[in-house]
């Protein structure tokens, strides 16, 4: 029983990381129907900004988070302006492939300037405390990362559902031309969406750096793909869905490693993607309404 509960703790902390990345993924998709494959790499850039602000500027974790989020918000807006905006009226496939291009561009530019070697997050940036509760090992990092993921989800949900900017985002998502006719600036709204999504990615990047201790330029690929699966699992475009999908993925992977074989973990994770797409492509929280043609 203790072992099972420990696995749940392990699964939740891993799931929180997927959830954090999936939130940004799903929001961008929800608004402009683009799967931003560069999302994982924006996360990586965020991790590096956080790393350098801790090691070179000596800032604390929260300032580092802030710096990373601001820098990546700007980066996200820039990528949208350069790479996606000119393709806004092309096929969705064109934008998707451009997103893969943006992803590779970020990875290899980072390798070029910062070398492919891993960097070690200073351990003293976030001192670790270990708690032992009834045989369960939980660290303050586990709690921090889960709580932060939930807070960010609530904030995001609030922004999208309750603010004017959020209303504009939903309007653009529903019908871009009608929104434009109503006086909503589509460009500004999409920029805002990217800024928000990229800031979330940056937060996730810094947290991953703190949680595992090392970062490298290719760190965004696998978590990015897994978070994508999590977003699809929860229902892509639906914010609470990303959260639930992330936690489910984390727990699923943990249980596969813990009770099955560690070598089937990734196979199961991507098998879930195939199953979901076959059985219920709109995901757990998705409605089954047909798209307008």
């Amino acid at each position: 029983m203790v072992e099972f509960l420990q696995q749940m703790v392990n699964g939740l902390s891993l799931g929180a990381i997927y959830a954090l990345i999936a939130l940004g993924y799903t929001m961008v998709y929800g608004i402009i129907l683009l799967i931003n494959f560069a999302h994982g790499d924006i996360m990586m850039v965020g991790a590096y900004v956080g790393f350098f602000s801790i090691t070179m500027l000596g800032s604390n974790v929260f300032v580092a988070l802030l710096f990373a989020m601001l820098a990546c918000a700007a980066l996200g807006v820039l990528i949208e302006k350069i790479a996606y905006k000119p393709l806004r009226n092309s096929t969705r496939l064109a934008a998707l492939i451009t997103a893969i291009g943006a992803s590779l561009f970020l990875e290899y530019v980072t390798i070029f300037f910062l070398t492919p070697q891993q960097r070690v997050f200073p351990a003293e940036a976030f001192p670790m405390h270990q708690y032992q509760i009834m045989g369960l090992y939980i660290s303050n990092k586990d709690i921090f990362i889960v709580v932060l993921a939930v807070i960010l989800m609530i904030m995001l949900q609030y922004i999208v559902k309750r603010t004017r900017a959020g209303k504009a985002m939903r309007a653009v998502s529903l019908d871009r031309e009608a929104a434009m006719l109503m006086g909503i600036s589509v460009d500004k709204t999409i920029s805002f969406t990217f800024a928000l999504g990229s800031a979330l990615a940056a937060a996730a990047g810094v947290l991953i750096g703190l949680y595992y201790g090392t970062i490298n330029p290719l760190m965004g690929i696998i978590p990015g793909l897994k978070a994508f699966v999590a977003a699809v699992l929860g229902g892509i475009g639906i914010i609470p869905g990303a959260m639930v999908g992330g936690f489910l993925m984390g727990i699923l992977e943990t249980m596969v490693s813990g009770y099955g074989s560690s070598m089937y973990r990734d196979a199961v994770a991507f098998g879930v993607l195939i199953l979901i797409l076959l059985i219920k492509p709109t995901g757990i929280f998705g409605r089954n309404d047909s798209e307008k043609v």
Binding site: E3, Q6, Q7, N10, G11, S13, L14, I208, Y212, T214, L218, I222, E253, T254, M255, V256, S257, G258, Y259, S261, S262, M263, D266
Partner: peptide, 20 residues
């Protein structure tokens, strides 16, 4: 006897299993 793949960062699930 367990295994991981290169690039993995989360080993806790399998470690918990090994601990048991």
């Amino acid at each position: 006897q367990e295994g991981y793949v290169s690039g993995d960062k989360d080993f806790k699930a399998t470690l918990t299993k090994i601990k048991a």
